[in-house]
């Protein structure tokens, strides 16, 4: 039986078995989500708190919906307007919430490693919803589920991840997951947006988009943050689109049945041409959003099972948890 972790902090800590367990369970939740009655009782009676120190609409909505469909009581905390502004440290915030006995904490934070730090201080299960430039595990898992459903497998594929790799936690989690599942991973982007030393990790690095996309099965585009376009990292938006924006011509270098992915929100005309994004034969961007809810339900279900098991064991051993 796989996936016995207390927290989901990153793909780095997962095994192939863990990943398959999540994806298999998520498949069943995809079916559930397509029914009219979508509710289960996997998290019945449990409390889920979404702590977003960094703004997010879609990820927070996805986690909220996932929790509610599993029957949890979900609370959203917008941390930008809270006590953090009054000078409370991350650990104190965590301890305060911990005292309210939540069962699942979903945390997004702007600093790499902040979610790990917080997880050391609380007794519930912590789900990393993105920390700095470090990891965004549920995004990588939902991407994997999307790929597996589209391609029928999640190994021996050539996946090109394109764009702002340096600042992207999505890229990091994806390249770790795809590597673990024995795929060929390519990173494609301008050298100013490529993190140092990635070539040493056995990853192919390209600064030519066409070369990078050649014979790829999956083309994964990343969002380019507006603030990177001001001449610091790139000369201009239009030059970026010309050299690295995904259009039909560049996509033609990939396999004929290559799928196009994007974690959203998209900048049409910057990193991706609108017609590609809307091409139902190539783009799986809407499917990614759908898989997102299912994957998050699967992750929370598994973490809740582990939590129950742990508490059950503690009870039989006479400890109070």
């Amino acid at each position: 039986m796989a996936f016995r972790a207390r927290h989901l902090l990153g793909i780095e800590h997962l095994t192939q078995d863990d990943i398959r367990t999540v994806l298999d369970l998520a498949d069943s939740y995809v079916d559930l989500n397509r029914r009219t009655v979508k509710k289960t009782d996997a998290l019945e009676g449990m409390t889920q708190i979404n702590m977003f120190f960094e703004n997010s609409t879609r990820t927070q909505a996805s986690f909220e919906l996932a929790g509610k469909r599993l029957g949890a009581d979900v609370m959203n905390m917008s941390m930008q307007t809270s006590s953090v502004k009054k000078g409370e440290t991350l650990i104190d915030t965590a301890m305060t919430l911990n005292a309210m006995h939540p069962d699942l904490l979903v945390v997004r934070h702007q600093n790499s490693g902040a979610v790990d730090l917080l997880a050391q201080k609380v007794e519930c299960a912590v789900l990393n919803a993105g920390d700095g430039r470090h990891e965004h595990p549920t995004q990588a898992l939902l991407d994997a589920l999307t790929i597996r459903r589209e391609k029928g497998r999640i190994q021996r594929l050539t996946v090109a991840i394109c764009g702002d790799i340096a600042h992207s936690r999505v890229a990091r989690s994806n390249l770790i997951l795809l590597g673990k599942m024995e795929n060929r991973v390519r990173l494609v982007g301008p050298p100013t947006l490529m993190p140092a030393g990635v070539a040493e990790l056995g990853i192919e690095v390209y600064d030519d988009m066409r070369e990078g996309l050649r014979d790829a099965d999956v083309v994964m585009m990343l969002r380019l943050q507006k603030e990177r376009m001001d001449g610091g990292f790139l000369p201009s938006e239009r030059e970026y689109f010309h050299r690295y924006g995904l259009d039909a011509e560049k996509l033609s270098y990939a396999k004929d049945d290559a799928i196009v992915m994007h974690p959203g929100p998209m900048n049409r005309g910057v990193e991706i041409d609108g017609t590609i994004a809307d091409d139902i034969n190539r783009s799986v961007i809407q499917e990614q959003v759908e898989m997102g809810v299912a994957v998050r339900m699967a992750c929370m279900d598994l973490l809740a099972q582990n939590l129950r098991r742990e508490r059950g064991r503690a009870l039989t051993e006479g400890q109070y948890v």
Binding site: S112, H134, P195, V198
Partner: peptide
Amino acid sequence: TNGKFASLRGLPG
């Protein structure tokens, strides 16, 4: 310091 460790940890190097 810049390098694969910094890149994997997502820390500015």
